[in-house]
Design a protein around this nucleic acid. Structure first.
Lengths: 207, 207
DNA sequence: CTTTTAGTTTGCACGGCGTGCAAACTTGCA
DNA sequence: TGCAAGTTTGCACGCCGTGCAAACTAAAAG
């Protein structure tokens, strides 16, 4: 007698396949960027390297830029997930501080750092900016439910804008100081920079 | 005797022509966006409407998106100009407050507001984000020379990131409340929102 | 005024992009 | 086993963005 009907697995074969394909494509795109400029390879190149057809590439990403941005998106989404996991009565900037220091396996951070180098090209940079902006929108939603009801919309939006804007700047500072160094030492410094940044947001920029 | 040799005019005929062409192209692009979606017209359409060849369009802008972003760029550049015009011993956030309230003829602000509506399409939004990011970079340069020498790089970058990020958010709030309303009344409200935002950055987000 | 020089516009051509569509194929389910 | 639903693929088409060389135009030199 077969095992009792398993409920449809949380992740079906189809979903696994799709995730694998998606990863393969993104990885292939990143790989090309590591050795060439953006305009020195084509979507076909990436598709072939990922083992799919050109058409399938476009089923997953609308461009190489978008594929590369998926790494940053993933990192930022994990920050948001950490943020949402914090107790909802905790002061939100405190939650942010925890979320920022909790996040990031060395591997994820290595990608984040590498992405900073590889996206100097404006066409790639635009997609990175969009990832940060999408992140802002999601966090605003979280903040709206966290802050006391009736909190001024300006307060909410300015807070999120300031936090995301300054954290992005902090990552930039980290990268300009450490480059692609993702040793524990360097990661600790990143966490410290992000922590200091949140403190500044909380206590204000005196001058 | 002819009039004494005039020094070569500050703006030559050539420069005037180029500026006019550039404006005509940007204006034509915006005009199409007012009535159609981004993918419902082509670069050729815009070029013809602007009275130039397709090839000339690309001599000025690399895409329709870039042409549309030129309006936001112009606005942000004027804010930076105001900022640089402030006395350099003034606290920088105070300078920011002045610059933000000084700037913006109704016409400029009308365009800024309209731009917000017309750039919902992600492809357009990306270029807007880039305009704000370019602005950050320029302001960072200003801030570096304004703040006491030796000020922490993190402080400078986080400050600018927070200011620009929150001000962008403030413009978003303004737009969501007033739409394309650019009456004196509405503009006063925008100035107030921006002023409040800078105050928040200065004094901190308590929670 | 004429000639020269430098800067700008244009047409052309080419490779690459992004998408609709329909046919082939794969997975899930009865 | 066979059907339904989801996924991949090839193809074709219009549009994009750029290098190039020829036409044109403003500015400077003679």
């Amino acid at each position: 007698m077969p095992s009792p009907a398993l409920p449809a697995p949380a992740v079906s074969r189809r979903e696994l396949n799709k995730a694998a394909t998606r990863d393969a494509i993104a990885e292939a795109a990143l790989n090309f960027l590591r050795t060439r400029e953006l305009n020195e390879f084509t979507v076909d190149d990436v598709a072939i390297a990922a083992g799919v057809s050109r058409r399938t590439f476009f089923n997953y990403f609308s461009s190489v830029e978008a594929a590369v941005a998926s790494f940053t998106q993933r990192y930022l989404d994990s920050v948001i997930a950490e943020l949402e996991a914090r107790p909802s009565d905790e002061p939100i900037l405190e939650s942010a501080q925890f979320a920022l220091s909790a996040v990031g396996s060395p591997r994820d951070l290595a990608i984040l750092a590498e992405t900073f180098t590889l996206t100097q090209d404006p066409a790639l940079g635009r997609f990175q900016l969009q990832a940060w902006d999408d992140c802002s929108i999601k966090i605003t939603e979280v903040a709206r439910h966290r802050l006391p009801p009736g909190t001024d919309e300006l307060y909410i939006n300015a807070l999120v804008g300031a936090v995301v804007g300054s954290c992005r700047a902090a990552v930039g500072v980290w990268f300009s100081q450490r480059g692609a160094d993702t040793s524990e030492d360097s990661l600790a410094q990143l966490r410290e920079l992000l922590g200091t940044t949140i403190s500044l947001i909380r206590s204000g920029f005196a001058y």
